[in-house]
C-alpha cells in the first residue's frame, strides 16, 4: 500500500513538461484569482465616489502612485487575458477548435491579443491623461 501511495499522480508538476496548453490553463485560474482582488478595488472605488472628498482623494492618490499604476497594469492584462481565454473556452463549449493545431493557434492568439489590448488600453489611457 505504501508504494502505491508514493507513486506520482499525473500530471506531476515537477516532472511534467510545461506546454502552452497547460500553462494557459493555469494562468486562466491565476488571473481569475488576481481579478477577484481587483473586484474589491472596483467596489472600493465605487464607495469612494459615493463618499467623495477625502476618501476619493485618497483612493485616487493611491491609484496614481507607482504601486497603484503597476497593479492597474497587472489587472488590465489579467482582465484581457481572462476575457480572451474565456472566449476561447466558450468556443470550445460550442465544439469549435478542438484539433491540436487549432488549440495551439487559439492559444497563441489569446496571448498576442491580450498583450496588444493591454498596450492599446494604456497608450489610450496615458494619452487621455496627458
Amino acid at each position: 500500500m505504501t508504494t502505491a501511495k508514493l507513486r506520482p499522480r499525473s500530471p506531476d508538476v515537477q516532472i511534467y513538461k510545461p506546454q502552452l496548453t497547460s500553462v494557459l490553463s493555469i494562468v486562466h485560474r491565476m488571473t481569475g484569482v488576481f481579478l477577484s482582488l481587483g473586484s474589491v478595488l472596483l467596489v472600493a472605488w465605487l464607495v469612494a465616489v459615493v463618499d467623495g472628498g477625502d476618501t476619493y482623494a485618497m483612493v485616487e492618490r493611491w491609484l496614481r502612485s507607482w504601486i497603484g499604476l503597476l497593479l492597474l497594469l497587472g489587472w488590465t492584462f489579467a482582465l484581457f487575458y481572462h476575457l480572451c481565454n474565456g472566449i476561447r473556452h466558450l468556443a470550445w463549449d460550442l465544439d469549435f477548435g478542438f484539433e491540436l493545431r487549432s488549440i495551439y493557434l487559439s492559444g497563441w492568439t489569446v496571448v498576442a491579443a491580450s498583450m496588444i489590448l493591454t498596450v492599446l488600453t494604456w497608450t489610450l489611457g496615458l494619452a487621455v491623461l496627458e
Binding site: 467623495g52 485616487e60 488590465t76 482582465l79 476575457l83 474565456g86 487621455v128 491623461l129
Partner: peptide, 22 residues
C-alpha cells in the same frame, strides 16, 4: 457571456473618464 460586453464597456468607460475629477 454577459461579462464580455459588460467588461468591454467598463474598460472603455474608465478610459473615457480617466481624466475626470470626482
Amino acid at each position: 457571456v454577459a461579462l464580455v460586453p459588460l467588461l468591454v464597456w467598463l474598460v472603455a468607460s474608465l478610459l473615457a473618464h480617466a481624466r475626470g475629477d470626482h
